[in-house]
Design a protein around this nucleic acid. Structure first.
Length: 835
RNA sequence: GCCCGGGUGGCGGAAUUGGUAGACGCCAGGGACUUAAAAUCCCUUGCUCCUCGUGGGUGUGCCGGUUCGAGUCCGGCCCCGGGCACCA
């Protein structure tokens, strides 16, 4: 049989058709088999797939195909994160509807993914913009509303003037919109929030039980949640019944609090200054600071600045009068927006006190030292012993924290408190192309939830999008005019839609429930398939998507939808695909289009290169020479099989991977190739299993192929040689098949092997086949390599020592010196130490 | 500033528990085949010195340490990437 020329497109189309026809990757719940859920982050359907997708999905596909061969019931789904702003912009530009643009892109990208030969169960495909999907999200919203997990409040929110919408805190990076890099403004708006902070403790605690996630991501989530333990302490305001509550992590320094700093936005500022001569200056200051943009206000070189309000409060323990300041460095969004200032032990307070000549009082000293106020050049922030602190003087500061809180509790002046950096998740978006929030505003009944039986609230399909980018929904009477679900009077529908991160917070659950049409989730299917065993995606979602999803899963669990605590057991964050050392971008003109590479070299070569060039976690620099090398290797493999089947065909029946030779006696050369074959299987299995190091997996197979080239001409002469050649070739195809499935499947068939390669079990190497009669032993003198020798495997220390001393080139380094000692590592190394 | 990663040939990258540094690929050079070229197959390839060998020296960011032996372990630096950052 002649194979002819390697034509990737032909081979790849053929096998994709066959897998499709034979439903090779469609799976169902099967409790008799262990399951494995491999998931890659689903793409936004922007038009075409890019190299980042190719990398992400190729990694996932190797895992899926490998686990399949290992006997797992593998679920490997794909879908579309289909709501989002680009669809609106494109619709405006092309005078079409976002849905039309989105569905067209999905069709194009689906075809591209199919062209890559990924082993998806396409029946599970979903698009989040379909009412069949988002209707369930609206149902979740109603349940959360009922429970109080979603609420509406007027709050200062992040506004992107270019996207015409608000953003969650997680979506603001350095004061800029994560999507368009515009400077984010602060606006006061009524918005819907999800109480993610209710889960802050659990979200944090579970991070310690997630060894399958990269440490980096865990750290980023810990930082983002930002739990700190301290106290709320009340400071009575002089001449008022009210008091100011502060949050502090340093209750031990309370005796040193000498003034009070409030955020310029603090609600008490107005009342404190009312009728005072300072009022005008304070208002002017507060307005100026509040009006500053985020970046400027957060800059590290921003000078501390403040104004005296004219009012005083009282230190609850010392009774000292503390002037109340409005200060630019105090944030309304953290703690209570009020800070007890302890200038001796907080650097910011120290700088502020120095600038405004406020009193400084030392209350903590390093052990065995005294600290004088006049000697301080910076705040002393380390732990130490309390001084000048009434009954607590002499107590170690760490102990004093609890003791002082206890004291405050007794007197009703404060309590222990935990504070988080994490804020509730603002999910309202003033956009059109998103899931409508199922709420109706009635003049008499207020914000009323839509009745569950009236779901879904669907997006109008005939909406014309205004050219200025604003949502058309508020102006669409057909959408907004609705009867109040409670009183029936005319009311107005909510026109905000949900953040698209809500859709991506549960899509991985829905994949497992594709048959469920009368509800969002099928608890039994979830119990079998979830959690996701291996999740793969970009590090850019370390906080956003990965934190929201964790929260959403917990919230759904507590609503009784399933019993899962965490959605993603193992997480792999793959690196970026670069070109010439930088991110690919249209403006730099360095974009490599996967489609053109597939057309030139085929999907297998693209998969091979992208997996070979770098380990998955690292960034990968696209190289045109590299992909040619990958293509060259596939041709080399092809020709090897071609030569094998045309030259040895009649005399050599196909042999299974890692076949046992039985009574067949193997020559030394045949044994050597067999050893290489088994070692390759061993290395490939280990590298996939322990670390997904596909680059070394491929290198190992390349080595085996190189060896096959070097030995084939002599081994083909004998029966044992042909046997070993056939086995080795089968093994090579078998273990390479998750990486380049099409060519391997074709060559497997060409060898005359029965069945589909895709259904083969993963080969198992035999330890016996790895053993050798002779070992290469390195001879060192004083740690430097001076020679190499072969010695019988298992040779004794004495034998190796003698052989080493007699080895060529060793004598001259030992001659005239005293051998002090000899270190022998059996079968490996002899180190002769001389003086 | 704090917290994570990471520094290995011309390049991408390998190196189980400390045991031959540079696997595999790219690039480059040489040979075979060919009328020729392409393709292919084979070989060489860290740097350096010489007497060209089974040779010597040197080499994994820098300095030091532990060890018979360090890319790997320890201490101290330098550089690069990422995250967080007036968070009270």
């Amino acid at each position: 049989m002649a194979l002819g020329k390697y034509e990737p497109e032909k081979v790849e189309n053929k096998w994709q058709d066959i897998w499709n026809r034979e439903r090779a990757f469609e799976v169902e719940v099967d409790r008799t088999r262990p399951k494995y859920y491999v998931l890659e982050m689903f793409p936004y359907p922007s038009g075409k797939i890019h190299m980042g997708h190719v990398r992400n999905y190729s990694i996932g596909d190797v895992v899926a195909r490998y686990k399949r061969m290992r006997g797992f019931n593998v679920m490997h789904p794909m879908g579309w994160d289909a709501f989002g702003l680009p669809a609106e912009n494109a619709a405006i530009k092309n005078n079409t509807h976002p849905a039309a643009w989105t569905y067209q892109n999905i069709a194009e990208m689906r075809a591209q993914l199919k062209r890559m030969g990924y082993s998806y169960d396409w029946r599970r495909e979903l698009a989040t913009c379909r009412p069949e999907y988002y209707r369930w999200e609206q149902l979740f919203f109603l349940r959360f509303f009922e429970k109080g997990l979603v609420y509406r409040k007027k709050a200062p929110v992040n506004w992107c003037p270019s996207c015409h919408t608000v953003l969650a805190n997680e979506q603001v990076e350095d004061g800029l919109c994560w999507r368009c890099d515009s400077t984010v403004e602060q606006r006061e708006l009524a918005q819907w929030f999800l109480r993610i902070t209710d889960y802050a403790d659990e979200l944090l605690a579970f991070l310690d039980k997630m060894p399958g996630w990269p440490e980096r991501v865990l750290t980023m989530q810990r930082n983002w949640i930002g739990r700190s333990v301290g106290a709320h302490i009340d400071f009575p305001i002089e001449g008022s019944k009210e008091s100011i509550t502060v949050f502090t992590t340093r209750p031990d320094t309370l005796y040193g609090a000498t003034f009070m700093s409030l955020a310029p936005e603090h609600p008490l500022i107005e009342t404190l200054t009312a009728g005072r001569p300072e009022a005008a200056a304070v208002r002017e200051f507060a307005t100026r600071i509040a009006g500053m943009d985020r970046i400027k206000r957060a800059a590290d070189d921003l000078e501390k600045e403040g104004v005296f309000t004219g009012a005083y409060c009282v230190n609850p323990l010392t009774g000292a009068r503390m002037p109340i300041y409005a200060a630019n460095f105090v944030l309304m969004g953290y703690g209570t927006g009020a800070v007890m200032a302890v200038p001796a032990h907080d650097q910011r307070d120290f700088e502020f006190a120095t600038k405004y000549k406020l009193p400084v009082k030392v209350v903590i000293t390093p052990e065995g030292e005294t600290l004088k106020v006049e000697d301080l050049t910076a705040a002393f922030t380390d732990p130490g012993l309390l001084t000048d602190s009434g009954p607590f003087t002499g107590t170690p500061s760490e102990e004093a924290k609890a003791a002082i809180i206890e004291h405050l509790v007794d007197k009703g002046l404060g309590k222990k408190a935990v504070n988080y950096r994490l804020r509730d998740w603002n999910i309202s978006r003033q956009r059109f192309w998103g899931a409508p929030i199922p709420i109706v505003y009635c003049e008499t009944c207020g914000a009323v939830p839509v009745k569950p039986e009236d779901l879904p609230v669907t997006l109008p399909e005939d909406a014309q999008l205004p050219a200025d980018g604003r949502s058309p929904l508020p102006g669409l009477e057909s959408f907004t005019k609705v009867a109040c679900p409670v009183c029936g009077k005319q009311a107005r529908r909510e026109t905000d839609t949900m953040d698209t991160f809500v859709e991506s917070s549960w899509y991985f659950l829905r994949y497992a429930c594709r048959d469920k049409t009368d509800g969002p989730l099928d608890a039994e299917a979830l119990a079998y398939w979830l959690p996701v065993d291996q999740y793969i995606g970009g590090i850019e979602h370390a906080i956003l998507h990965l934190l929201y999803s964790r929260f959403f899963v917990k919230a759904l669990r507590d609503e009784g939808w399933h019993k899962l605590d965490e959605p993603f057991h193992n997480l792999l964050t793959q690196g970026m695909v670069l070109k010439d050392g930088t991110k690919m971008s249209k403006s730099k003109g360095n974009v490599v289009d996967p489609a053109s590479m597939i057309a030139r070299f085929g999907a297998d070569a693209v998969r091979l290169f992208i997996l070979f060039a770098s380990p998955p976690e690292k960034d990968l620099d696209w190289s045109d020479a590299g992909i040619e090398g990958a293509y060259r290797f596939l041709n080399r493999l092809w020709r090897l099989v071609e030569e094998f089947v045309s030259g040895l065909g009649p005399v050599c029946a196909p042999v299974a991977p890692c076949a046992e030779p039985g009574s067949l006696a193997l020559s030394a050369k045949a044994k050597e190739l067999r050893r290489k074959e088994h070692d390759t299987v061993r290395r490939v299995s280990r590298d996939i299993e322990t670390s997904f190091q596909f680059n070394t997996v491929i290198a190992a197979v390349m080595e085996l192929v190189n060896d096959l080239y070097l030995t084939k001409d002599s081994l083909r002469e004998t029966e044992d040689g042909r046997f070993v050649l056939s086995s080795a070739l089968s093994s090579a195809l078998c273990v390479l098949s998750p990486v380049t499935p099409h060519i391997c499947e074709e060559l497997w068939g060409a060898l005359g092997q029965a069945g589909r390669l895709v259904d083969q079990p993963w080969p198992a190497h035999s330890e016996a086949a790895l053993s050798t009669d002779e070992a290469l032993v390195v001879v060192q003198v004083n740690g430097k390599v001076r020679g190499r020798m072969t010695a019988p495997t298992g040779a004794s220390t004495e034998t190796l020592q003698a052989l080493a001393l007699a080895a060529p080139n060793v004598g001259s380094h030992v001659e005239g010196k005293t051998v002090v000692k000899v270190i022998v590592i059996p079968d490996k190394l002899v180190n002769i130490v001389v003086r």
